[in-house]
């Protein structure tokens, strides 16, 4: 009974080019930086950590959004597949922005960045996730897809799963005491990964 609505939605989505996402997130990154520079709203008193946290959380949201596309299509028929690459690339640039705020504005020196990565497990975990995103970002173009071949490319891009886990563990680990938000991210990500395990298992005997 919902099918006509979903068909209509899919038709509308087909008309929205995927590159609009790049514009939206580029504006978002610039806008948040501008707000932090002017210390307005949440950036009122201490803009550096606030901006670091804002970019980091948005990156995690984008990673979750990327993982939701397949289940969303499977369970509701809503097809956002053509946006997935842009979402992944935007997530990479968001993590890059998060890292740059950390390195340049927060710890403020390369030696301190290195010390943090080596000495603080939650930074190590975050850095590992970031490094794993680089090959995915680099191969997010049609040429790479052709060169690698579909099977290899898909296998490589399964790195998105451990990246998502590392991202949510990084968040959970850095907060002080018991906080609910990072636990929600972790639970949602594990839920989305569990769905894949379930369907992969079902596919094997068939």
């Amino acid at each position: 009974m919902l099918t006509p609505i979903i068909d209509r939605l899919n038709q509308l989505l087909r008309r929205v080019p995927a590159w609009t996402l790049y514009i939206v997130f580029a504006i978002y990154v610039g806008w948040q930086f501008w707000l932090a520079l002017n210390q307005s709203g949440r950036y009122l008193v201490e803009p550096i950590n606030a901006l670091e946290r804002e970019y980091g959380e948005t990156a995690l949201k984008l990673i979750v959004a990327g993982l939701m596309i397949t289940p969303l299509r499977r369970f509701t028929g809503v097809n956002l597949l053509k946006f997935r690459r842009a979402i992944g690339v935007a997530a990479f640039f968001m993590v890059l922005a998060h890292f740059l705020v950390f390195a340049v504005l927060d710890v403020q020196s390369i030696s301190r960045v290195w010390t943090e990565v080596v000495k603080r497990p939650y930074v190590t975990v975050g850095a590992a996730g970031f490094l794993m995103m680089i090959p995915l970002a680099v191969t997010s173009n049609n040429l790479s897809l052709r060169k690698l071949g579909g099977a290899t490319w898909r296998k490589l891009h399964k790195l998105a799963y451990p990246i998502a886990v590392l991202g949510s563990v990084h968040y959970l680990w850095l907060v002080k005491g018991f906080q609910i938000e990072p636990l929600i991210y972790l639970a949602v990500i594990f839920g989305l990964l569990a769905l894949r395990v379930k369907f992969a298992a079902r596919r094997v005997p068939a």
Binding site: Q39, V45, E46, I48, L105, Q108, T115, E116, L174
Partner: peptide, 19 residues
């Protein structure tokens, strides 16, 4: 255990506050 106590950020320096 999760961060250095060697330096600190004095609140009030804005986005480019040094440690």
């Amino acid at each position: 255990p999760r961060w250095s106590q060697g330096t600190e950020r004095l609140i009030g320096g804005g986005l480019f506050a040094s440690r």
